[in-house]
């Protein structure tokens, strides 16, 4: 259990780094590390397939996409953030931490446990036979994403000016 809590804390720390670091490449990399930690947490929660997806797709593919974008938008990306934002962050974080701890404990501890009993079947059966509709929707989402990229990077056939 202690390991799990250390991992979770690491996840939070790296996520916070991802938004606080000024250098975008470093931010994207700490996001990737956070994903990696999340993948390990998934693995320890007996969700190996989700862990593999988290590590390969989120920590891998999405990081590559981020770095590609950062490289493509390199010139003139010196956006100055307000200084106050970073200074105020720990204050708000601690404030939220306290509220979060109190609320979560009081709200969720009363929820009774579900009737125990291991799930039937294997992961493949659950994915393909119970959640078949999700696979159809996944096809839709992927199609939408591909078409969106096609539409946004198309060459304009003629310039329309307003």
């Amino acid at each position: 259990m202690a390991i799990q809590i250390i991992l979770l804390c690491g996840l939070v720390i790296f996520s916070a780094l991802a938004i606080l670091l000024k250098d975008l490449i470093k931010a994207a990399l700490s996001l990737a590390v956070a994903s990696l930690l999340l993948g390990i947490i998934f693995f320890r929660l007996a969700a190996p397939y989700a862990a593999v997806f988290e590590i390969s797709v989120v920590a891998g593919l999405i990081t590559v996409l981020f770095i590609l974008t950062i490289a493509l938008t390199k010139k003139g990306d010196e956006v100055t953030e307000a200084r106050l934002v970073k200074l105020a962050f720990p204050v708000f974080l601690i404030l939220f931490l306290v509220i979060d701890g109190l609320v979560m404990k009081s709200l969720l501890q009363k929820i009774p446990a579900l009737p125990a009993g291991p799930e039937a079947g294997t992961f493949g059966e659950v994915l393909w036979k119970q959640r078949t509709f999700d696979l159809v929707a996944q096809v839709g989402v992927i199609l939408a994403g591909v078409l969106a990229v096609l539409a946004l990077f198309r060459k304009k056939e003629e310039d329309k000016d307003e």
Binding site: F42, F53, R131, G145
Partner: peptide, 27 residues
Amino acid sequence: KNNILLAQSLAITYVVVEVALVATALA
């Protein structure tokens, strides 16, 4: 809650959605 197989398939689907969103947003 002893529903790990179901939750796992939901998480994987969610990752797929995330990728489509990231691609669109970065574009």
